[in-house]
Design a protein around this nucleic acid. Structure first.
Lengths: 179, 179
DNA sequence: TTTATTTATTCATCTACATTAACAATCAAT
DNA sequence: ATTGATTGTTAATGTAGATGAATAAATAAA
C-alpha cells in the first residue's frame, strides 16, 4: 500500500485518534461526517436487525477504510455501527474528501481505486451469500482473509458469514475430524 | 437522470447496439472491455453456481449501467453473465472510460456518482441477505423497484431474492390470502 | 392451430441451519 | 485468586426454505 498521506491527501497526524477495544466510533442513526482509515488495529461495521441480532457487514484491519457510504453520500442517518475490535489508531477522514463534489483529479483517482475494490468485494459477497453453503462461505472467508481469523472470535466470524456461532462451531468440528 | 452523452462523455449513437431478448452480451470466463448502459429495455447479470443454478446479481433497466466491475478493474475473466430480458438498446461503454487511469475530472466525478450509488445498493443487499427472511426481502424488492416486477417472471425475482420459485410462489399465495 | 417449452402453483418430503439449553473453557474485573 | 461475564462446544428439537414431482397455465415455435 502506498503512503497514507498520499492516498488520502490529508495531514494524517492531525486527524489521528486512538480508541480502545469496544469503543464505538459511529452509531446507527447518527450522521457522522467522517470515514475511518485504520492505521493500526481492527474495526468492525455491523447492523442490528429488528430482533436485536448483530450482523457484521465488514471488518477493517490496518490499511482499510470503512464508513457507511450510503449514509455519507446521500446524507442519511447511518444504518451501521462502527466499533473497535482491538485498540486502534484511526485517521478520521472528512467524508467530503472521499465523497464531496469538489475533489481534485488526484483525489478522485485515488478514491476510484478504493471504491472499485470495495465494489468487487461486495459483489463477491452477494454472490457467495446467494449461492454458497455455510461451510463454503467459511472456507472462502479463510482464504480471502487468512491472517484475520486469528484476531476474531468465532462469534464474529459467524456473524460475518451469516450463521449462528453454534452452526460455525459444528462446521469447524466436522472439518477438524475429517482430516 | 441527466443527459446520457453528458454522463458517459461519449458519442452514444456510435456505440449503440440493438439486442434481442435472450441475447447474451457477456459470458462467464470472457474478458469484455465494455460496460453496458441501457438506453431502452432490460438486462440481467447473473452467476451460475457449481450445481448449475442461476443467481441473478442485478437487473439493469433503462438508465442503468451494468458490468462485471471486478473483472474490468482487475482485468480478470468475468464471473458474470449479462443477458437481455427484453429487446434492448444498449450503449457499449469502453471500460477504460469508466475504470481507466487517464480520466478527466468531469468523467471521474460522474463515475463517482454511479459507483457510489452502486455501493449503496450492494450494501443494502448484503444486509438484507444476512438479516431478512424471504418475505421481507420480497417486500423490500417490490418497494425498491416498484415498476420492475411487472416486467419480470417470478422465477427471475426468486433468483434475485435468493429463493426457489416454489418458495416465492408460496409466499405470494400467503400474502394474497392475508388481506 | 397445434405442439412443444417454459412458467406457475400446490403438495409431500427432506435438510441445512436456527433455537434452546446445559456445560466447559476463556476472559475480564474487582 | 475469586467472581462474574462472555465465549465455545455439544446435543435435542424446531422451522424456513430446498427438493422433487405432478398439474395447470402461459409462451413460443412449428
Amino acid at each position: 500500500m502506498e503512503n497514507i498521506n498520499d492516498i488520502l491527501n490529508i495531514d494524517s497526524i492531525a486527524h489521528t485518534k486512538n480508541y480502545k477495544k469496544g469503543d464505538i466510533l459511529q452509531r446507527h442513526g447518527e450522521t457522522n461526517p467522517n470515514a475511518f482509515f485504520v492505521k493500526h488495529g481492527l474495526l468492525k461495521s455491523y447492523s442490528i436487525d429488528n430482533k436485536g441480532k448483530e450482523h457484521i457487514f465488514m471488518f477493517a484491519p490496518e490499511g482499510w477504510v470503512t464508513a457507511d457510504i450510503e449514509s455519507q453520500v446521500f446524507n442519511r442517518p447511518s444504518e451501521l455501527f462502527i466499533e473497535c475490535i482491538e485498540d486502534s489508531e484511526v485517521i478520521l477522514v472528512p467524508g467530503n474528501l472521499l465523497f464531496g463534489d469538489d475533489l481534485s483529479v488526484e483525489q478522485l483517482k485515488k478514491n476510484k481505486i478504493l471504491t472499485m475494490r470495495r465494489i468487487a468485494v461486495l459483489q463477491r459477497r452477494v454472490i457467495m451469500l446467494m449461492s454458497a453453503s455455510a461451510l463454503e462461505r467459511y472456507n472462502a472467508f479463510l482464504e480471502a482473509y487468512p491472517n484475520l481469523s486469528q484476531r476474531l472470535t468465532q462469534k464474529m466470524i459467524a456473524s460475518y458469514l451469516g450463521v449462528t456461532p453454534q452452526a460455525l462451531s459444528t462446521i469447524r468440528g466436522k472439518t477438524a475430524r475429517n482430516k
